[in-house]
Design a protein around this nucleic acid. Structure first.
Lengths: 229, 229
DNA sequence: CGGCTTATTGACATACGTCAACTATTGTGG
DNA sequence: CCACAATAGTTGACGTATGTCAATAAGCCG
């Protein structure tokens, strides 16, 4: 069930670090791991929560849909991250759906175990408060983005956020297909293409997933980027 | 310092209910209350956190500014609510500023007292996890709004959210000047005016702060509104 | 009752979405 | 390994929602 590699990854997760061995054991008592292909759905908006999910590997997107069809991406979670704890904490139905973007291994913790551990173990409660606090900031940043920046500025900020700096430039490897990035940034794939075209003039080059940023400085001032984590 | 009316309000706040008398006493040890006029600033984006703020009365807006000037409103807090706990929990600078919208009385809790109580009192940690979980959902809903709905739909959803239902209709009393509502909904005051004009055809009437909604049903379907709390 | 702020309306600009055609990339089976 | 289909991304033409700027009207307060 829990492979060795999974154990390793679990040990490195922020949750495990924060709450330690004994509390983790409680959470794992009835937990299981599933290997899921890209496209698999973990849960749907409106459903009752049955498991708390922890991403062991791969990537999982949170999707929101309006009554019409086109889903948008709220956030993408990677290795070590916990999915949609709020619904689990509040015993409320999911506000969003979750879809595997890159084939993933996911830990399923029964929500009753999570809730009872949350009652009993103060470290878990503190860890959740901290995790949610971090997430609050991620979401607020996204709202600021959507309200205050143009699509090209959002793209620039996104590239800066995932870039590996070196010297005055940086290189970026896009972690998702462009279509997903477009949704995450609140635009259509077409607009994303055009945003990339606009950024060419600001020193963004390369094709496929690998890109080079010629001048981080220039991008930063274009995006009105504030590095605050 | 703490007036009787303040005590009353404090007792009714979700925080007090959740953590009880003794933990609350710890938080209050060095706390003070300030009466603030509309327009007063509680803190600025980028500043270090020195106090945790609890709104006793009045309304306080969270503002975000880009490098250019025009601020946008992330959220408005009313009586009994806690302001920007994430920065306090994480010991990170504020991501947003706070401005009093309607003259307010605000409790200032020194952040050291908050942090030490958070360490020691599991009930506070759990209360914070729950509070942040609720807030997470508020923010996600706003992101869904911004990405998936038109300005008129956002306004319709907003009106439904604050409406007092009666029969098939409802009445609404706008809690903020229209300029603030516009910013909260991610549009200009001009666009808000036009959104109201569009909703007239859907049975939204009245002027000034008091409005009537003729058919909640009609608005709901127009806004593609999902009531999920 | 002025005078100041706040909201509305109109004319216009623009960013972004939509639709469609085209191109590139990826995967698959012969 | 190539050929081809399927999918993903780009580009162009065009429409529309929303922003901008300016003028007017409406509320609000001393």
């Amino acid at each position: 069930m829990l492979r060795l590699a999974d154990e390793e990854r679990l040990k490195r997760s922020p949750l495990h670090r924060a709450i330690g061995e004994p509390a983790m054991a409680l959470l794992l008592a009835n937990a299981s791991v599933q290997a899921l292909p890209a496209g698999a759905r973990l849960f749907e908006q409106g459903e009752e929560v049955r498991f708390l999910h922890l991403v062991l590997s791969g990537r999982v997107s949170l999707l929101a849909k309006a009554l019409g069809e086109p889903d948008t991406v709220i956030e993408v979670f990677a290795e070590g991250e916990l999915l949609v704890a709020p619904a689990a904490i509040l015993s409320l139905p999911y506000l969003v759906s979750a879809e595997v973007t890159t084939a993933a291994r996911v830990l399923f913790i029964p929500v009753e175990d999570f809730r009872s551990t949350l009652e009993r173990d103060p470290a878990l409660a503190r860890a959740m408060a901290e995790l949610l606090a971090r997430h609050w900031r991620v979401l607020v940043r996204q709202i600021k983005d959507l309200k205050l920046r143009s699509s090209a500025q959002r793209l620039a900020a996104y590239l800066l956020a995932i870039a590996e700096l070196r010297g005055g430039g940086a290189s970026v490897s896009l972690p998702e297909p462009r279509r997903v990035i477009a949704a995450r940034l609140g635009m259509t794939p077409e607009s994303l293409s055009r945003a990339f075209a606009r950024l060419k003039r600001l020193g963004v080059s390369g094709k496929g997933r690998r890109l080079q940023l010629e001048s981080v400085e220039q991008l930063r001032s274009f995006s009105a980027y504030d590095d605050q984590r």
